[in-house]
């Protein structure tokens, strides 16, 4: 997302999860499933429109995703709203944990499998196409991967803050990494560190976990920024 300059799409996409969570809660299924379904629909929608229409993607994102957020807030039961918006680590049960683990491993494997093609597309879509890479297919896989990440994150960080963890560790890594390998490793390490440290700080001070994790990640970012400027 960061390298493709789609950071805000990642953030806005996470808002789409809210109506999915609301509907899932209303009919009594796992909210993660509802989020995943809503996100998948949105991703296929973005993919189709960016391939088949002239609409400027940024405007599309602005309209479509804020609409989802508004609709989601209206239909989410009030008692669940705070949790849906900001997440709550205490509500994550063993089934969620297994679900998350399997999902994360799958996403990681698929990402590694398509990463060369994705990166070549960042350098030049024409160059990728001239090598017979099916760029449209890779784009769809990529958007579905982002959906997967967001769906796994919403229970944890909520629909408003999940986007932050898609963006911040990667931007921080970009500040300090000199090559792609370092960038990929640092993104993962920084994301994990910020999450672990955020949870510890939150539990010590009795803060809500989501915002604490995001602010911890932001502090890493500021540090990397100063480090880079020197």
């Amino acid at each position: 997302m960061v390298l493709r300059r789609m950071s805000l799409v990642g953030d806005a996409l996470s808002h789409v999860a809210l109506p999915g969570i609301a509907v899932a809660l209303a009919i009594g299924v796992n909210p993660m499933l509802g989020a995943l379904l809503a996100l998948t629909l949105a991703a296929v929608g973005i993919w189709y429109l960016s391939d088949h229409s002239e609409i400027y993607p940024e405007a599309l994102v602005g309209i479509f995703f804020t609409a989802s957020l508004a609709a989601g807030i209206l239909i989410t039961p009030e008692v669940e709203l705070l949790e849906a918006l900001f997440g709550d680590i205490d509500k994550i049960g063993p089934i969620d944990a297994i679900f998350t683990f399997i999902g994360a491993v799958t996403i990681f494997a698929v990402t590694m499998a398509v990463s060369k093609k994705l990166l070549l597309m960042v350098v030049s879509k024409d160059l990728a196409k001239s090598q017979k890479i099916k760029t449209s297919k890779i784009d769809l896989i990529y958007l579905l991967l982002v959906c997967g990440v967001v769906a796994l994150g919403v229970k944890f960080l909520g629909t408003l803050l999940t986007g932050a963890m898609v963006i911040i560790p990667a931007v921080t890594a970009k500040n300090i990494a000199g090559n792609i390998k370092a960038y990929q490793i640092l993104s993962v390490v920084l994301g994990t560190l910020a999450t672990a440290a955020g949870i510890l700080i939150a539990s010590y001070f009795k803060f809500p976990s989501g915002p604490t994790i995001v602010l911890t990640a932001i502090s890493f970012f500021i540090f990397s920024f100063v480090f880079k400027k020197r």
């Binding site: 960042v122 350098v123 160059l127 970009k174 990494a177 000199g178």
Partner: peptide, 21 residues
């Protein structure tokens, strides 16, 4: 076919080395 495009607008900050490319 080997294709040499005219120019590429590559982000200066893109952490991709020539070797990796």
């Amino acid at each position: 076919i080997g294709y040499v495009p005219q120019k590429l607008a590559i982000d200066k900050e893109l952490p991709l080395t020539v070797y990796e490319f």
